[in-house]
């Protein structure tokens, strides 16, 4: 299996944020993680990306145990992520933001062309020299995805990529996520907007109180009674 976690648990004192989760993800599939606030979705992604250390359990990537790997080592293996609150280099230009992850690649000879290609893909080429704190929130979200993509990742975690984005920009972001899948990237994302989830996701995982309560193709999850009750409000 491409990416898998076994008995993953994270406790903060007495509180268990992620409780004995075992799940696997196949290559080149877009998976959405949904669930009410406090379900443990972001903690799960933080554990997978290395931001948090698990209390118990294991994480495997391409068959390799990466549980104790540091963030930069996971990133160099091809695991990238974005954050719920945009996490970029606010004081640097858009160009420099994309250059930093690209500098981790072994071959940096054609770096300027690669940056231009990436910025064009995300329609950011016109603001390349603008300081990133001065661009719109939607562009900042796109920039963060662009930075993640600059790592040439195999697996990409997106934490609420549509949060705070206006309807026009949402379309662009959804389009880019689907295109990423087409180029061979496995995407796992957290999202609250169920309409957008159904547009993008091949598979859906439902989390509740730190546990996975349902997993399956989008069509079947939509009809799941438990999911309707706890997440879709019984509709």
């Amino acid at each position: 299996m491409f990416f898998r976690v076994e008995n993953l648990t994270k406790k903060f004192g007495e509180f268990t944020a992620v409780n004995n989760v075992s799940v696997s993800f196949e290559k080149n599939v877009i998976t959405a993680i949904i669930g009410p606030n406090g379900a443990g979705k972001t903690t799960f992604v933080n554990l997978c990306s290395g931001l948090l250390k698990p209390t118990n359990g294991y994480i495997f990537f391409n068959g390799e145990d990466i549980t104790n790997y540091k963030i930069h080592k996971r990133a160099s293996l091809g695991i990238a992520r974005t954050f719920q609150i945009v996490n970029i280099f606010q004081g640097l230009s858009v160009w420099e933001n994309v250059k930093i992850p690209l500098l981790s690649r072994k071959n940096t000879r054609d770096i300027d062309n690669t940056i231009t290609k990436l910025l064009t893909f995300f329609k950011l080429e016109n603001i390349r020299y603008t300081t990133s704190s001065e661009i719109s929130h939607g562009d900042q979200r796109l920039l963060e995805m662009c930075m993640a993509l600059a790592l040439n990742p195999q697996l990409l975690f997106l934490d609420e990529p549509l949060a705070g984005i206006n309807p026009q920009d949402r379309g662009v972001i959804i389009e880019r996520i689907v295109e990423m899948k087409r180029s061979g990237i496995t995407v796992i994302f957290i999202e609250h907007d169920i309409e957008s989830v159904l547009k993008m996701a091949d598979e859906i995982i439902v989390m509740h109180k730190g546990e996975i309560v349902a997993k399956g193709p989008s069509s079947s999850i939509k009809e799941n009674d438990f999911v309707k009750e706890i997440y879709l409000g019984g509709c």
């Binding site: 990133a75 996490n87 640097l92 790592l151």
Partner: peptide, 24 residues
């Protein structure tokens, strides 16, 4: 240089540098 840019990156956002596959 590129190294200087990485240092500025650390000053700006250490975690993002780690997520950019560089050891801070």
């Amino acid at each position: 240089s590129d190294f200087g840019l990485l240092l500025e990156g650390i000053r700006e956002n250490e975690i993002r540098v780690e997520f950019s596959a560089h050891s801070v």
